[in-house]
């Protein structure tokens, strides 16, 4: 097996390295990816779509962060189904790993090491207190990342992962049980579905105003007091979409951790 792998890797690698020489140099602002395809004579065939994204986005959506605007607006379908993929991964973990019942019929795969926790073990107290102070700050930061994703790096995926990580931190620092008291299995699976419903619901809402699915400009009727109703409608719809993404990602990240760390029993974690 090793020899087959070595031959395959050497062959593929040398072919790819041979092709590298034909790329434009790294960091070339005039490369076809950045400025659109060119003829051999240097004549421009067409403009690259990314140039239009950069020049038009602020005017059309009033969102300075081009990445968020392209993610949630121009490529809304793509992001919606990426979120569905994350949700499907959570369902797959549930289907693969989750076991019901008290688990007493299956012997534990690994002896529980009781000697790590002794009476008067102060390290647990220190970790628990630190996490008690830290977790609200992490969650506040996650909310900031979600809500401020238009203006700075961030958005639904990042904020959702940070929010999920705060629950994972709680589960690691104390135990899975106390994390599940806060955020039970029923709750996180519901939250994951609600996230996708928010996203798809915003898309369907646009259809009620005789526009296409996920064409947020249709929601300008709700922007009563704004000078730029269409642009602000797109901006706020992006926020709504990011919140939906964040719900799903938060729930699924914690669901994956809870199932992986407790072998699907959701009893005792790491």
């Amino acid at each position: 097996m090793k020899w087959i792998a070595l031959i395959a890797v050497t062959l593929t690698g040398s072919l790819l390295l041979f092709g590298v020489g034909d790329f434009p140099e790294w960091g070339d602002p005039h490369s076809p990816a950045n400025q659109g395809p060119k003829l051999k004579s240097g004549e421009q065939v067409s403009k690259a779509v990314s140039q239009d994204f950069l020049t038009e986005t602020y005017e059309v959506t009033k969102v300075p962060n081009v990445v968020t605007a392209v993610l949630a607006d121009y490529r809304g379908y793509d992001t919606m189904f990426e979120t569905v993929v994350v949700f499907a991964a959570g369902l797959a973990i549930f289907a693969i790993l989750r076991v019901f019942g008290d688990g007493s019929d299956t012997p534990p795969m690994r002896a529980v090491e009781d000697d790590t926790f002794v009476e008067g073990d102060h390290s647990r107290i220190i970790i628990g207190t630190t996490c008690k102070l830290l977790i609200p700050i992490i969650q506040l930061f996650a909310l900031y990342v979600i809500a401020h994703g238009h203006y700075s790096p961030g958005g639904g995926f990042q904020g959702g992962v940070i929010m999920g990580a705060s629950f994972i931190l709680l589960a690691i620092a104390r135990d899975l049980k106390s994390a599940l008291d806060w955020f039970s299995e029923k709750n996180f699976m519901t939250l994951a579905s609600v996230g996708i419903l928010i996203y798809a619901g915003l898309g369907v809402l646009c259809q009620f105003f005789e526009r296409n699915f996920l064409d947020y400009g249709a929601l300008k009727v709700f922007m009563i007091s704004s000078d730029h109703p269409e642009q602000m409608a797109r901006s706020y719809s992006m926020l709504g979409v990011e919140i939906g993404v964040a719900f799903t990602v938060t729930a699924i990240m914690f669901a994956i951790y809870a199932n992986l760390s407790s072998r699907g029993e959701l009893k005792e974690g790491l």
């Binding site: 990314s50 993610l71 990426e82 994350v86 693969i96 790993l97 992962v161 994956i256 072998r263």
Partner: peptide, 28 residues
């Protein structure tokens, strides 16, 4: 260029979700 960033941002999150599924299969 923002376009590759957008494409790759979602790929990372989907990547960790699929890694989770793979780890679940490994545990089974």
């Amino acid at each position: 260029n923002p376009l590759p960033h957008v494409l790759m941002l979602t790929a990372i999150v989907v990547g960790v979700a699929t890694l989770g599924v793979a780890l679940a299969v490994v545990q089974m």
